[in-house]
Amino acid sequence: MVFLAPATVIYSVFMVYPLLDSLRRSFFDDDGNFAGLDNYNTLFGNPTFADRFWDALGHNFQFFAFHMVLQNPIGLLLAVLLTVQSVRGLNIYRTIVFLPTTLSVVIVGFVWRLILSPIWGVTETLGIDTPLLGESRTVLPTLSLISVWQWVGIPMIFFYAVLIAIPKDLIEASRVDGAGSWQVFRDITFPLILPMLGIISILTYIGNFNAFDLIYQVKGVVAGPDFASDIMGTFFYRTFFGASGTTGSPAMGATVASVMFLIILVGVLIYMFGWQRRVTTYEL
């Protein structure tokens, strides 16, 4: 099949093969000898790895929680407001709200790093006197907020897409039936966008467990202070390439990647069997 060949070949060689090979490598040592579960034993048994791993995993779940609690509801709220009929200038807002999403993480990271820097004093003017990115207590929430700020455009535009696809007369029918704005949302709009909520949640989950760039950019690979902003992505990178004093190990890197693979797989399975089975998508 000439039509299928290019896509299948490139996908298989540069995506499927590396993923499988990566899994394989997690069972071998750096010299290519079969090592059974040694790498996994090291990861979970050796405190230098295990502590960092559990920390990173915990942080990553916090990072995800921030996105679920803030990014997606805010995205939904903005999308709902953007689809309110009879208000002018909505397209301008839509463009502006999405703008941060188009900026690269490097830029976003740096912009916020400068703005939050105690040296500049912008935060002081705004009444914040802790170095938000400097203290272990605040660094992860702050980075999460920055990430939310950047990515809120994605859930917004996704929700927006389903919202504008809901026929206007459904909404009108419910208004004639006696529903106020809140009831229309609760009884009509929300049930109809529920499938999209699931899709956005799983995309957020995958995205968050894949996150790296922002933390790397703002806090470097050591994800300071004192690993307080370390998440799976930075942990993976350090394990693979090494950082400040430790040497990297491809085999251990592959092991971490395999565990991340498993974590993401669990999320996807929960989504597919716990959610998708129960939530029906309606043709509108």
Binding site: P18, I202, G233, F240
Partner: peptide, 19 residues
């Protein structure tokens, strides 16, 4: 082909680099 939507390619980095 669709599986790849759900799995981040970054997890294969070790092997991609070797490749």
């Amino acid at each position: 082909l669709a599986i790849g939507i759900m799995i981040p390619i970054r997890l294969g980095t070790v092997s991609i680099l070797k490749l």
